[in-house]
Amino acid sequence: MAKETRIILICSGKGGVGKTTLTANLGIALARQGVPTAVLDADFGLRNLDLLLGLENRIVYTAQEVLEENCRLDQALVKHKQEPNLALLPAGNPRMLDWLKPDDMKRIVSMLSELFEYVLIDCPAGVEDGFKNAVAAAKEAIVVTNPEISAVRDADRVIGLLNTQGIKPVQLVLNRVRPKMMATQEMLSVEDVTDILALPLLGLVLEDEQVIVSTNRGEPLTLSSSNSPAARCYSNVAQRLQGDDIPIIDPSKEGSGMRDKLKRLMQTKIF
C-alpha cells in the first residue's frame, strides 16, 4: 500500500459516551469516501460494534481464530453489505475473556494494515487491560467525550495515559452537544472542555434522537444520505480526519436559522 495505514484508537475512558457509535459512523463515512477501512472491535468482552453495523449474524470467526491460524484473515473479516470498502473484525469472543495480549493486538493490526488505509480500533471503556491491549497497536487516537464533568475527567485520565504511550496525534470529538443547554450554561461549553483537555478539536457531534433509531436498526446514520444533525457532524469528522478543511459547527448558531426551525417542526411527531 502506497500510503501508510492510519491506525486510530477511539477511546473515552468513561462508558456510554459514544465510542462505538463514532467508530461505526466514521467507518461508514470513510468507506463511502472510497477509502478501504477496517473497524476492529477491541471491546471483545462486551462487543457491540457488530450490532451497530448490523453485522451480528455474519460473524463466523474472530481475530482469535486468525491468530491461532484456524482460519485466514479474509475469512474472519466481515464485509459490510452496502459498503464493501468497510470490513469489521471482532477481536474476540465474549466467552473468552483473557486470551488477548498487547502483542496479539499488534500482530492482528499489522495484518490489517496491509489491506486497509484506515484501521479504527473501538476501545473498551476503562483504563485496565482491555484499554492497554487496544492502545498497544494504535498510532494515533481520537478521544470521545461528552460535555459532562465525569466524562471530561475520565477523558483527561485517558489522555494522560495516551501521552505516556507516545500516541500522537490525539484529537478530541465532543459528542452529544446540546446547543440550547450550552447557551443557557446548563452544560459545559466547548471552551470549558477544550480548556481542560487541551486537545485539538476534531469535531462536535450534536445530540440527535436519530442516533438511537439507527443504533437499534443496525444502520449507522452516515450510511443513508440522511440529513440529520448527527449524520452531518459524523461525515464532517470523517472529512476532517482525511485532512479536508471543514469548519467546525458553532453550537450557538446551530438550529437558529429559519430552515433548521422548519426542519425540526417537520420532524416533530404530533399525536
Binding site: 475527567r153 483527561d156 485520565r157 489522555i159 494522560g160 501521552n163 481542560i196 487541551a198
Partner: peptide
Amino acid sequence: QGTLRSGEHLEVEGDVLLLGDVNPG
C-alpha cells in the same frame, strides 16, 4: 514540564516548579 492530568500524582522531596496545569483529579 507538562500538564498533570486526572489521576496523575507528582510527588517531590523539596520544592517543585511545574510548567503546566494541575487538572481536576
